[in-house]
Write a protein that binds this DNA or RNA. Structure first.
Lengths: 114, 114
DNA sequence: TATATCCTTGGCAATATTGCCAAATAAGAA
DNA sequence: TTCTTATTTGGCAATATTGCCAAGGATATA
């Protein structure tokens, strides 16, 4: 890896890191349906407001969401809906893993039956 | 978030976490071109063998790659090529962020020129 | 068997992430 | 202005990640 490659992969990793948390993935899913205020998301997630606010700032810094003030509230919106294709791929990996598990289990069953 | 939702988002986050590292993203890119032995990847990355081996085991545990022994070597192969669509999306986010930066800069230039 | 090669694992220190509480800030309402 | 609501920020302890070194398999070759 040369310097430029390192920079490229670091840039990618930084965005992926922003997604690498259950609450933040949940937020992305929720914002895909509609923009939401911090308070709404906080209630849906069931964590401290400050925690959710920090999660949102991680997503914002990564350029995944944008915010907009409306009165005292702050509305967050998903900026790149392609994030969801991404999640489709993750689901494929999960399914593939599950399939592998099932195969392992059925293999053991067969052997035990002999 | 109910219990099942928590489990779902945790499962997704675990796979995304496995991708959230520059060296591991590089490995995924390299394995997309062709399967590789640990030693080859180690040389390409320029880290300690043990470090690369641990990165590979993270990817393997997440179900993103598979390994296969060949003599003393261990060949790793990308299991889910859809991972790359995923990276396409990440590139979109990076480009979008860059665009935003350019806009901010050009805005400042305009003001400075007045 | 001995020896070399390739890879994984254990251990550990440095660093980063997470989530809560408390305090600060922002904006509208009284 | 003062009060209230909505959100962000600072601080901190608990936890997780990272990367090196050293040691431990596993497999081929002499």
């Amino acid at each position: 890896m040369n310097q430029n490659e390192v920079k490229l992969y670091e840039a990618r990793a930084n965005i992926i890191k922003a997604l690498a948390h259950p609450s933040r993935l949940y937020i992305v899913d929720m914002l895909n349906k509609q923009p939401r205020a911090v308070g709404e998301l906080t209630e849906m997630i069931g964590a401290d407001t400050s925690t959710v606010s920090k999660h949102l700032s991680v997503l914002k810094n990564a350029g995944i969401v944008v915010d907009e003030k409306r009165g005292t509230a702050v509305i967050y919106t998903l900026k790149c809906p392609c994030i969801l294709d991404f999640i489709g791929c993750i689901e494929e990996v999960i399914e593939s893993n599950t399939k592998t598990q099932v195969e392992i289990l059925s293999c053991c069953k067969t052997r035990a039956a002999r």
